[in-house]
């Protein structure tokens, strides 16, 4: 997800599965019994390349894997980790599960929402830089509050550390 480009919902769709990405996908096929089984990785590739999965990209994935767009959409909407709307250049996930909550994740979240300019959960900052969401357990309860920015893991985040961390994500 690092370095994902910000895209608009109405931008024309340029195929994802060409060149390198196509080769990546083709290399996966022999590892699975059916093309359909490559659906989840294929969706990841789209998200990696475009930052989100547009309806046009869903149609492309369907075409490439011999499925129907409706089927692909059903699967894509099942998993919360696929973005079906454009998100900021950097995607921030803050843990809000009980242990972190007890250790003050609320305050961390508030600080991040303020510092990024996002204001509310799920919204993208006006400069297109950040989108913030709250997630359930990131599996690091001993390091409350953990924050995932793109693929980078930050542990023991406190409101005071927020500004410094965000500065690393232009």
């Amino acid at each position: 997800m690092t370095g994902s480009t910000h895209a608009h919902a109405d931008a024309p769709h340029h195929p994802v599965f060409v060149g390198k990405v196509r080769e990546q996908l083709d290399a996966l096929f022999p590892k699975y019994p059916t093309k359909q089984a490559c659906l989840l990785p294929a969706l990841w590739m789209v998200q990696e390349a475009r930052g989100w999965i547009s309806p046009a990209a869903i149609a492309e994935v369907a075409e490439v894997l011999g499925l129907t767009p409706a089927y692909v959409r059903g699967v894509a909407t099942f998993y919360t980790m696929y973005h079906l709307h454009p998100v900021g250049r950097h995607f921030i996930q803050v843990c809000g599960t009980s242990p972190c909550h007890l250790c003050g994740s609320d305050e961390v979240l508030k600080a991040i929402l303020g510092a990024t300019g996002c204001g509310e959960l799920g919204a993208t900052s006006a400069d297109g830089r950040f989108t913030v969401v709250e997630v359930e357990c990131l599996g690091a309860c001993g390091f409350a509050t953990p924050v995932l920015i793109d693929d980078d893991f930050h542990d023991s985040v406190t409101p005071e550390r927020v500004a410094g961390i965000l500065a690393r994500y232009p």
Binding site: A70, Y71, R73, G74, T77, F78
Partner: peptide, 15 residues
Amino acid sequence: AVLNVSERGDRAFIG
């Protein structure tokens, strides 16, 4: 196959 089950849990609907 133009129909699907979209989303999941209590948010699920036929898409």
